[in-house]
């Protein structure tokens, strides 16, 4: 049985390590968390195998056989040595794991050596959208840049200052392996260093109401050059000056599907979305003026469609969309719902 247990532990560890548990590791922190998890698996599997082996072994060896109906087992009440061993060994194992975890924790939260290199980005959660704010020193403009999409240059440490406008949210990119609540009234923060280019989801991990499951955005980790180009682009209007109606509407369709992310909550046949959190735009916007559509977007609390509650739709679109994006979106919605 001992041999069986050892073999089963080895096989168990090999299987557990072979499973591809984690998403793509896209930050230096994620790699360390993954290693910690591997160590935890290696420590855990033999304990589970031990329990399982004893249970199965006892069932095979000591199950009641015909003729034993009235028999009892030997009256063994305990064994001091055994009891000391199974108190001390787990205690040592656990303290070892705690010490290692402490080291990992210190590593992943450590500030980068030079503070100048670190970029600080504001993250604001509200029902049900994320706003990312780049300080003006980085954005290069006269005021901070607010976006609904997070773009990060690869290999540059970043510190997120996280806030919430209404209820608690949680800012998480699974590929970065670090998350933290956005709490009304305080600023929380964490650091990561993205080390792999790609596009990853931004997820709200704390139940925040009706639209919790659609409170998603995305983060793009790009080369420093691409990052600078993106910053440049943000300062340009989304639609060229003097665009005609159809160009404007086409740009608006991009905004609807992309940065504004309207389709997560709203149904709109033209865009092929079927969100159910908010009103069906095909119905409620039919025959509505452009001014009214604009108000509905930037000040959703002003008038709420029948059957829907207040405090559901984000109120930040005036900040996160540029003026031209907003114009385009209004033009598109007008066109698509007539």
């Amino acid at each position: 049985m001992v041999v069986g247990g050892v073999v089963a532990s080895a096989v168990g560890i090999a299987l557990a390590l072979a499973i591809d548990w984690f998403p793509t590791l896209a930050s230096t922190q994620a790699g360390k968390v993954h290693t910690l998890y591997d160590v935890l698996l290696i420590a855990s599997v033999p304990i589970f195998v031990l329990v399982l082996t004893v249970v199965i072994g006892a069932v095979i060896q000591f199950r009641m056989r015909p003729g034993q109906e009235d028999q009892d087992g030997p009256p063994i009440h305990g064994n001091t040595l055994l009891e000391v061993v199974w108190t001390a060994v787990p205690a040592l194992l656990i303290l070892g794991l705690c010490a290692y975890s402490y080291v990992v924790l210190r590593d992943i939260e450590e500030a980068p050596a030079s503070e100048r290199q670190e970029m600080t980005i504001g993250v604001t959660g509200q029902q049900f959208a994320w706003t990312f704010t780049y300080p003006k020193e980085i954005a290069g403009g006269e005021k901070p840049l607010s976006t609904t999409e997070l773009v990060l240059p690869v290999d540059r440490p970043v510190k997120f200052d996280i806030q919430a406008k209404d209820v608690i949210h949680d800012f998480w990119v699974p590929e970065f392996s670090v998350k933290l609540d956005a709490v009304p009234g305080i600023t929380t923060s964490y650091r990561i260093t993205p080390d792999r280019r790609g596009t990853y989801p931004v997820v709200c991990a704390e139940l925040c109401g009706l639209g919790h499951s659609v409170m998603r955005s995305r983060v793009r980790v790009v080369t420093p050059d691409e990052f600078d180009a993106w910053l440049q682009e943000q300062s340009q209007p989304a639609v060229p000056e003097g665009a005609d109606e159809s160009q404007l509407a086409a740009a608006g369709k991009q905004v609807f599907a992309g940065s504004a992310g309207c389709g997560a909550c709203h149904t709109l046949a033209d865009a092929g979305t079927n969100g159910q959190i908010g009103p069906d735009l095909d119905e409620v916007l039919k025959g509505v003026s452009e001014d009214k559509i604009r108000t509905d977007i930037v000040d959703p609390e002003a008038e709420i469609a029948e059957g829907y509650g207040a405090g559901v739709m984000p109120t930040n679109f005036e900040q996160t969309l540029s003026a031209s994006e907003l114009d385009a979106l209004v033009a598109y919605l007008k066109e698509a719902t007539q």
Binding site: S44, C98, Y102, L105, V178, A205
Partner: peptide, 18 residues
């Protein structure tokens, strides 16, 4: 066992609320 894993702060930071 998964409870002990969840005591380990860096791992919990990744899997909390999942």
């Amino acid at each position: 066992i998964s409870g002990v894993m969840l005591a380990m702060i860096p791992f919990t930071i990744h899997v909390s609320d999942t």
